[in-house]
Structures are given as structure tokens and as C-alpha cells.
């Protein structure tokens, strides 16, 4: 279990980015964190990843405090961040350097097949499309079999079709080993399609505003009335988190189509 206990972050320049964020996340849960800009979503994710230390509170994974990157916690960034001097296969195997070459090759081969890029094994990252590159990044993060996978707006740079494909693909991959997924997103649709729980944050300073459980069976139908219902609830919570008036039903219906910024 991943436990966040009153996690806070104040940057050296005095910006209070995150304040007393607490949550308990069970192994295998999918959590979406959503909120307006400056609500500390990315700060929180970087604290969980061990990239930046929280200035107050603790992050613990199964009782171990996280203060630096941890073997059981992986992260996927908004950009694929592939190493341009390594082939696709070597990029996927990047985190497996402590294994023997043989085991590594086998795991990489399986991962390549799993993300449907077997024919790109020896390609350079520059030869991939945006969606392919992000698939390689997902494979690279998943192949060491993390218990917790963090995703920082992983699909926001992709076109709508590719994004939808990759959301489904991510769920498919998640089902293999069922790690905990913590996804930071701007996209209400994405949050509702993927998450068991949506955590809505409010800005200045960033803190937890509301938690919405998405009680929908998977696979989820993006066009069902239930789905729309949950989307509306998340949107309403978002608007209230920014002290806006609750939108009328027409505005909510339209807003669900677009990305929420």
C-alpha cells in the first residue's frame, strides 16, 4: 500500500505548491489526479517518484519511506524521454542492467510483442511516431514490474485517436500484473475511463478537494449514460474547486467533449 501522509511542498522561492495531501492507495488501484493548473499535481507525483523531496509529511510504500527513486516505483512522463542513442529494444531494457543479457533479451522481446512493436526492435527512437514512442516508454517503465506506476499526463501530447488507443492499451497492460497506477491528467474523459477513484485537487496551495469513486465495470463504454454521469460529477467538482458556479447542464455536456484545462 502506498500511503501519503500530509505531504507538503514549499519551493525554495517560497511558492507553496502542495499542502497536507493525504491519501491511502491500495495495490492495484487506479487513481486519477485532476485539477486546475498550479494545483500541485505534478509536484505530488514527483514526490511519490522520489525525484523531489516533500518539505513536510511522508510518502511510504509498504512501510518504507520514499525519499529517492525506488525500484518498485516507475514513472511515465508527458514526453517519452527515450534515449536517442539506444535502439528501441535497448531503451526498453534500460532499467534491467542488473539482469543477465539473456534474461534481459527475453523480457525485452516479450515487452516488445506486448506493445506491438516487435518489428521496431532495432529502430532508433527518432524513427517512431509519437504514439509508438510513448508505447516504448510504457514498456520501459513496466518491464521491471513496478508495484506503482506513476503517469504524468502521459497522453496529452498525442492526437485524440492515438490517445484513446493508448488508454485502452494501458488498461490492457495493467491487467497483466495489476500494479497501482497513479495518473495525473487534464482530461476528464481520460480520468473517468481509467480510474477507480478520481482525486480532484484545488490550487494555491495545492490540496485535495474532493474524491469521486468511479463505480463502473471495465471495459467502460465511453458513450453510456453512466459514463456521462461520472464525467459531469468530475466536471462539477472541478468547477467548484476553482470557486466557479456550477455549470448548467448544456455547458457540462459540451465541456465533457473537450479537454479540461
Amino acid at each position: 500500500m502506498l500511503a501519503l501522509d500530509k505531504v507538503g511542498k514549499t519551493y525554495p522561492n517560497g511558492v507553496h505548491a502542495l499542502s497536507r495531501f493525504s491519501a491511502e492507495i491500495k495495490l492495484g488501484e487506479i487513481i486519477a489526479i485532476i485539477g486546475g493548473s498550479g494545483c500541485g499535481k505534478s509536484t505530488l507525483l514527483r514526490a511519490i517518484a522520489g525525484l523531489d523531496r516533500a518539505t513536510s509529511g511522508t510518502v511510504t510504500l509498504d512501510g518504507t519511506a520514499i525519499t529517492a527513486p525506488h525500484a518498485k516505483i516507475g514513472i511515465i512522463f508527458q514526453e517519452p524521454r527515450l534515449l536517442p542513442w539506444l535502439s528501441v529494444a535497448d531503451n526498453i531494457g534500460f532499467g534491467l542492467s542488473d539482469l543477465s543479457a539473456e534474461v534481459r533479451r527475453e523480457k525485452v522481446t516479450r515487452a516488445l510483442a506486448r506493445v506491438g512493436l516487435t518489428d521496431k526492435a532495432n529502430a532508433w527512437p527518432r524513427e517512431l511516431s509519437g504514439g509508438q514512442a510513448q508505447r516504448v516508454a510504457i514498456a520501459r517503465a513496466l518491464v521491471p514490474q513496478p508495484e506503482v506506476l506513476l503517469l504524468d499526463e502521459p497522453f496529452s501530447a498525442l492526437d485524440a485517436f492515438t490517445r484513446r488507443d493508448l488508454q485502452d492499451h494501458l488498461l490492457d497492460l495493467w491487467a497483466d500484473t495489476r500494479p497501482t497506477l497513479i495518473l495525473v491528467t487534464h482530461d476528464v474523459d481520460e480520468a473517468v475511463v481509467l480510474a477507480d477513484r478520481v482525486l480532484v485537487m484545488r490550487p494555491r496551495p495545492g490540496r485535495l478537494f474532493e474524491e469521486i469513486a468511479i463505480n463502473l465495470a471495465r471495459p467502460r463504454d465511453r458513450n453510456s449514460a453512466h459514463f456521462d454521469n461520472f464525467k459531469r460529477r468530475v466536471l462539477t467538482a472541478l468547477d467548484r474547486s476553482l470557486d466557479r458556479n456550477v455549470p448548467d447542464s448544456e455547458a457540462a455536456a459540451n465541456a465533457g467533449e473537450a479537454m479540461w484545462w
Binding site: 517518484a49 525525484l51 529517492a68 527513486p69 525500484a71 516507475g74 514513472i75 534515449l83 534500460f94 532499467g95
Partner: peptide, 8 residues
């Protein structure tokens, strides 16, 4: 560089 840090 952050990728390197993540993989410790």
C-alpha cells in the same frame, strides 16, 4: 538525466 535517476 531524470530518466537515469528514476532507474537509480
Amino acid at each position: 538525466v531524470e530518466v537515469g535517476r528514476i532507474f537509480r
